[in-house]
Structure formats: structure tokens, C-alpha cells
Design a protein around this nucleic acid. Structure first.
Lengths: 219, 219
DNA sequence: CTAAACAAACCAACCGGTCGGTATAAGGAA
DNA sequence: TTCCTTATACCGACCGGTTGGTTTGTTTAG
């Protein structure tokens, strides 16, 4: 968001190319969240921002390029969330089993934010249900992002399993994937039937499952 | 499906309006699964079926009407799966805790089918990520279908909880919703990173969670 | 001067939708 | 049986509007 302290008067600094680009991306993301990519026209995006066609094609070579830039930005934010929770959980505890629990606890804060968002959406899912419209490179961005969660969370789970044998046999990869599954599933649930604590409730189930598996205190 | 026993020769009965309608729905579903609704043109559907514009608008008043007919058909199939698994689980055992386990076991067969499908997709999710394109009645079909799962599975869980207090506190509704969440999440996972046993693995985690909660098999 | 944005006209392709017409089969009346 | 009517099912040319994208030129700020 970062305001520009110099230009708080009335007129925003006209000479900010990157800012206009971000505004175009923001408007596109909002519209795509409701209608999908195909139904979102360039004119609609332009109308929201208050720009003209020339401006759009100055910043993006094509609509496809917009789509690509958009998921890359989204994937970057997603990566930041993962890295932040990962790092904080490592700082807070050294025990692998506890760290896993703390990690999910930190994600619960993210879930609360999503539950407080009017129309929560995930660009990954939106794109994947229109995957036929995008080229391989664009689709790969999504796959890479999801695989990163699997790798990082999977590593944590492996450490926890090593420290404390789970109460039931566990496949670390699919158990790590389950985090993605729960988030993506919660998006669908939230957008269809709604509810004020969908993300939180589902993530708490995941945490309860982990706690039962690694049975804190009791074995 | 009901075949016409009179016209089994070679030429299909020309006078089969319902059949053409189904073919249009099938073609539309396939295309929408890959591109979404907005990007799927009527001409594309027609080309697949080998029909012309006049035929389409003879069977459907508009593209919106096609969308509506399509989810209603999908919701009807979805309802059939739920009813089938529900009824069979009731036949197989009387104990509420076991019935829940059997029910999920039957769904595992469905999961195997999905894992064997080239491009598994759920129209509910596809629509929900383009929800801005459909009217309220169309969107309601999806919400009703998902609520039905919550109600039916939620009732089973409540009976199980009553019979055998779970190892951790349980909210029946959100635990029932978790089934939908896992399926929908598995769709996204399957379509992005792929894998031959995504649905099965995730559903097995759900079953493992239930077994740990209700201590089936081992206590 | 150059980067960044505005303005407006223009284009071919495609979109959802309309419309007049046609082939076929069933049903009734002669 | 033959003829006529009627409804179903389908055809394909056509229409106005929108789409992504282009072009050419002007303006503004650093």
C-alpha cells in the first residue's frame, strides 16, 4: 500500500509507471476473482483504473502477458506467506513436532484474515479451472508454487515423524499436500455456502488431525 | 438413458430430441471443464456435436439456460452418488461409528474413479470461480448440493459422536464439510501438480482422522 | 529528451442470438 | 390407402455488438 509522503495533496504523482502497472494488476485481479479470466475484458479493467487502451498495451504486450504477470505476482505473495510462517515457526521452537503445530497455528492467523475477507479467492484455483486458456509456462507457475508447499511442509513432517513415530502410518508428501487441499477446498466452500469461520474451522481440523497423529503427551 | 428398443438397427432414431440435448450438454461440460464457461462458445459446442446454431437454440433458450441445465444435471448426479453411498452404508452396518467408516470407504471407490479420470473436474468449482456470470438461481443449485452433503454426513457424525465420544471435541457440521473441502481441494491439486492417487490419498487422510477421533479398529 | 500516459479512431474475428425455411414422422379424415 | 395437418428437430445465413489488438499523434512531468 505504501503511501507517498510527498504527494499527499490531491493529485497523485503522475510519473509513476510501476504504480499504474500495479493498479492495472489489482483491478484485473478483482474482476477475475468474480468472473474468471476469459470473461474479464481489458476494457473493464481500464474502466476501473480510469486509464485508456494505449496505457494497457504500454505495460503489457497482450492479455496473456497480463495473465502471466498476475499469477507471478500472486505466487510471489504466496511464497512470502510460506517463508514468513516457516521462519517464525523455526524461531519459536526447536522441537520438530511442536514446530509443525506452531506452523499451522501461524497459518490460522492467515485463515482468520481470509474469513474476514468479503470474497476470498485464490488465483491458482481460478486459473486451474480455465487452464486451457493459458500456456504451459503460466500454468507451471502454479504447479511450482504448490510443490514448494509440499516440499517445505513435507520436510517438517518428516522431521516430526523421525522425532516421534505417529499413531498411524503417515505419507509425508500427501499429508503436506493436505494443507493445500484444505485451503483450496475452503475457498470453494466459502464461496458457495459461505460462513464466517470456514477457513479457521477446516484448518483447525487439520491441526487436530496432526495432534492426534503425533499425540502430544499421550502415546 | 433408456434406449429405444425399436430402433437398434444402424441409424439412430432421427426423432430423438432428448439425445441431441444430452450430447450438447456433454460437449459443453467437456469444454467448460478445460476452459471455463465464458471462454466456451456455442459454436465450439456445436462443432463438437456436429450440429448447427438453430439446433442449439431449439434446445436451450440462451447460453445462460445451458449453464443452468448443466449444473442441474451435475447436481442430480452428485445427489445420486451421495444417496447411493448413504444407502449402502446403512445396509452394511447398524453401528453409527462403523457406518461412518464404511461410508468413507465407499467414497474411496469414487475417489479411485476420479484418480483414473484423465482430467477430473467439478462443475461446482468451475462455476463458483465464475460465479459473477450466473444468476442467483443457478448459483443456489450449487449451495444446495453442498448443504445436502453437510446435512446428511453431519447427521451420521452426530450419531457416531453420540455412540462414542470422540477423542477430541468435534463440530459435526464443519467435520462433514471437510469431506467437500477434501474433494474440492483434491480437484485443484490433481489439476495442477497431478498424481495418480491424489483423491485416494486425501480421502484416506480424512478416514484416518475419523478413525483417530472415534478410535475405530484400535482403541 | 525520454518515459509515461492520454486520446480516439480503426480493424478483423468472434460472440450470442435471430429468423425463415426444411425434412421427417405421427395422427386424423376421406 | 391416400391426403392433409401439425409438431418436432434441425439447418445455416445473417445481424448487431464486443473482443483483443493496432495505429497515429498529443500531452505531461522529470
Amino acid at each position: 500500500m505504501g503511501f507517498d509522503p510527498r504527494a499527499m495533496g490531491e493529485e497523485m504523482a503522475k510519473r509513476s509507471g510501476a504504480e499504474t502497472r500495479e493498479k492495472l494488476l489489482d483491478a484485473a485481479e478483482g474482476l477475475i476473482n468474480r468472473q474468471g479470466f476469459a470473461a474479464t475484458s481489458i476494457d473493464q479493467i481500464l474502466e476501473r483504473v480510469g486509464a485508456t487502451k494505449g496505457t494497457f498495451f504500454y505495460h503489457f504486450a497482450s492479455k496473456q502477458a497480463l495473465a502471466d504477470a498476475l499469477i507471478r505476482r500472486f505466487a510471489s505473495q504466496d511464497r512470502a506467506v510460506l517463508a514468513s510462517c516457516l521462519e517464525r515457526s523455526k524461531t519459536l521452537t526447536d522441537d520438530p513436532v511442536q514446530r509443525l503445530d506452531v506452523f499451522v497455528g501461524l497459518l490460522l492467523e492467515v485463515a482468520d484474515v481470509l474469513d474476514g475477507t468479503p470474497e476470498p479467492g485464490c488465483l491458482f484455483a481460478t486459473y486451474c479451472y480455465e487452464s486451457g486458456l493459458f500456456d504451459a509456462a503460466t500454468n507451471d507457475v502454479i504447479a511450482d508454487a504448490i510443490r514448494r508447499w509440499r516440499d517445505e511442509v513435507g520436510a517438517m513432517i518428516r522431521e516430526a515423524v523421525e522425532r516421534q513415530p505417529p499413531r498411524a502410518p503417515v505419507d509425508p508428501d500427501s499429508l503436506a499436500d493436505m494443507l493445500t487441499v484444505i485451503f483450496e477446498g475452503a475457498f470453494v466452500l466459502s464461496r458457495t455456502v459461505g460462513g464466517p469461520t470456514v477457513f479457521g474451522d477446516q484448518l483447525r481440523h487439520y491441526r487436530a488431525y496432526l495432534r492426534l497423529l503425533f499425540g502430544a503427551g499421550a502415546a
